[in-house]
Nucleic acid binder design. Structure first.
Lengths: 144, 144
DNA sequence: GCCGATTGAGTTGTGCACAATTGAATTGTG
DNA sequence: CACAATTCAATTGTGCACAACTCAATCGGC
């Protein structure tokens, strides 16, 4: 007993819980779009800029091909993206949005507000949280 | 392009990234203990108090039986816990630590320090982050 | 130009997360 | 007491995360 680390005192558990809670809030909203949360993240990157290689998507999101390959296959199955071998470098696969993929962008605009509404934090707190998380993530990733 | 939500501006992505980075820092440390991160969380709960029913573990961790049942089966396979039907209520399964499970507690004491070392945040920032995350998680979960 | 090293995407295998369902045990109400 | 409703754990199915590996394309040094 006793001097073992306590669950409620652990920042790692607070992060884990908050992250799960956030995706749980998004889940029903994204379900209306026909997307899972990681699929939504991929679409966010593509809505910013396309085409993107699998490699670039992985760098943005911190995911490897073992995660992205099947995920992109599902997005392609949904008719939202297309994959094609890059002409300049035959190792690369470029991912581009289909017309349906572009169209979904409009329907997605209301998504982030959902989290803000449910968060119960002031915009100042949100901003500070965001900054601290960014700093933390950078430090943790660079310690590996 | 345009007014689509941007990945880097999303708090949900900051949470997702930070949570993944934290478990990545823990992974090699926990590997020395023979545990995955969710298995470590379950052990944390049991080190605080046992026995715990599957239901109670799920309530503490926010996980359902679909996640816990196979996870506990693996912990049992490792010889760290035992499961047995509760005497008072035959629906419940009580999870108890084995001797090896108790012994692992001592080796786990150094684990949380690893994250603190890698975090690059002051203890004040950590504390504030923890408080904000707790508040956020409560608000998000109660909005469901 | 050749060849070893590296890079990029995909596959396989393990484990977590969650929805939906099953089936047994218990509870509540008539 | 009876029995419908609820609770609890387990199972099934889908999808994400990551390690380890394969294989082809490219790059670098000579």
């Amino acid at each position: 007993m006793s001097d073992a680390p306590r669950l409620r005192h652990q920042v790692c558990f607070a992060l884990y819980s908050a992250s799960k809670a956030a995706t749980a809030v998004y889940r029903p909203v994204l379900e209306d779009l026909g997307l899972t949360y990681p699929q939504y993240l991929v679409m966010l990157v593509l809505w910013e800029q396309e085409p993107r290689s699998v490699r670039e998507l992985g760098a943005e999101l911190g995911l490897d091909s073992g995660t992205l390959s099947p995920l992109l296959k599902r997005l392609e199955g949904l008719g939202l993206v297309e994959r094609r071998r890059s002409a300049e470098d035959e190792r690369r696969v470029d991912v581009v949005l289909t017309e349906a993929g572009h169209a979904l962008s409009a329907k997605s605009k209301a998504v982030p507000q959902r989290l803000a509404d449910a968060a119960g934090l002031s915009s100042g707190e949100i901003e500070q949280l965001h900054a601290t998380l960014a700093k933390l993530t950078t430090a943790l990733n660079s310690s590996l």
